[in-house]
Design a protein around this nucleic acid. Structure first.
Lengths: 111, 111
DNA sequence: CGGTATCCTTCGCGATACTG
DNA sequence: CAGTATCGCGAAGGATACCG
């Protein structure tokens, strides 16, 4: 974990966990897929590189928001998915933000 | 506004709006104060500089999450507050995140 | 008290190449 | 298909000084 300092507000720790361009979008994708492989996520999240994706997935795992399952044999296969507790709870917040985001987009279309 | 590109996911626009270390904490403070002056916020948000605070407040205003009221006369006085629509709606998401953040903090204390 | 401007350091993140 | 390593640029953000 990359957490060190004392936090004045619980929102600060959430910022440290979710910061970066990709984390919320990755969580959002996992919400819809239920389970997804690395290459699936790479295809669905436009613009992300494999390096960034793996980096962010690793951090999300360290914070118990997602987990993964490794399958034996070739070709290699993994499944990433939201954790029942923290992962699915944070999704509730993202659902609201998604709605607000949609409002911004609708307003842009008007003008 | 700093928004340009096309968005694949509404969460991307929210990221562009809320990104940075301070925005969520500022919104959270305004939720509790109702209305707050610059100096009040500066005191309550530990570690923030006046420059950062003003910068972030300006951006939050541009995105209609907060607004401000200027009072005439000396000493100068302003009041910052959440907007009824977008500001108070995004707070709903922050409330959930705040809860999850508290869980992380509680778990840290155990270990 | 509220707000603007400048300088400087850190780090997010994109590109690219390589391994099991 | 999944994952690791390196390099470099540009933006975020901290310190500091100054203006209405």
């Amino acid at each position: 974990m990359k957490i060190r300092k004392e936090y004045t507000c619980p929102l600060e720790i959430i910022h440290d966990i979710l910061k970066g361009k990709w984390k919320t979008v990755i969580l959002w994708q996992l919400k819809y897929h239920g389970k997804a492989s690395l290459s699936q996520l790479e295809q669905d999240i436009k613009g992300i590189s494999q390096k960034m994706l793996l980096e962010q997935l690793k951090e999300l795992r360290e914070f118990d928001l997602i987990d993964k399952l490794n399958f034996e044999g070739y070709p290699l296969k993994v499944e990433y998915f939201l954790t029942e507790d923290k992962g699915k709870k944070i999704i509730k917040a993202l659902e609201i933000m998604q709605e607000v985001g949609q409002e911004y987009i609708n307003e842009c279309r008007k003008s």
